[in-house]
Simulated scan of single mutants.
Amino acid sequence: MRRPCSRTDRQQHLPASPARHGDHARGRNGAGKTTLLESVSSLIPTSGGAITCAGEDITNASKVGRRRLGIVHVEQGRTVFGSLTVMENLRVATRSASEIDRAFDLFPELAKRRESAATLLSGGEQQMLVLGRALITNPRFLLIDEMSLGLAPVVFGAGRPPAEPA
């Protein structure tokens, strides 16, 4: 059984493994899950301690430097570029047609809306777009805050336990 992240002496311990392994942080509201992810992705400064990735201290690394290490953060809420179409939102992440097709394979509903402005998508479709945009960058570490926010249960896999690491 996986144990939620614990806070000890102002340090968070989260196992680092490739995103495909499915490690996760759980806890009650206010436990610091969002703060942890925002610190790792450099959205907010750390108040102490160190952040390491693959043995490298990245505490003072920029957002771009962390992205180059393969760290991708899907923030809480729907962070789409509203005035852009679905296709343009995906092109922000990659110019590769095969990677964009992969996003449409993952979320077929988006393919039907490829020319729609992101603001015209439902909340669930916007969340699929954000997740698709993140996944087509082939992240080494994918940090997702509120994974199921706005997604229909069939998309999220309701009723199934979270995947255990391989």
Rank of each mutant, 00 (worst) to 15 (best):
Q12R: 09
P4R: 09
T59L: 03
A31H: 12
L37C: 01
L110N: 10
T59W: 06
P4K: 07
K33A: 05
L143S: 04
G157Q: 05
E115W: 04
G32A: 05
P139I: 05
R102S: 11
G82I: 04
Q127Y: 03
T119A: 08
F156P: 00
T46V: 15
A61D: 05
L142G: 01
A166R: 09
P18T: 02
Q12F: 14
L84M: 15
F104K: 06
L110Q: 11
E146P: 05
R114T: 09
R2G: 04
V80I: 15
R68V: 03
P45Q: 12
T137W: 07
V86I: 11
R67M: 12
R7T: 11
G132K: 00
E99S: 14
V155I: 15
G159L: 09
T59S: 08
G32P: 05
F104T: 05
L43Y: 13
L143V: 07
M147P: 09
G27V: 12
F141D: 06
L135R: 02
R10G: 07
I144W: 00
C53T: 12
E109A: 12
E146Q: 07
G157N: 06
G49Q: 13
P108V: 04
E88L: 11
H13T: 14
R26I: 13
A19E: 09
K33V: 08
R26P: 00
E75M: 13
L149Y: 00
R95A: 14
S116E: 11
A134K: 00
V64E: 07
Q127S: 02
V130F: 01
D105G: 13
E146K: 03
L36P: 00
V155W: 09
I51E: 08
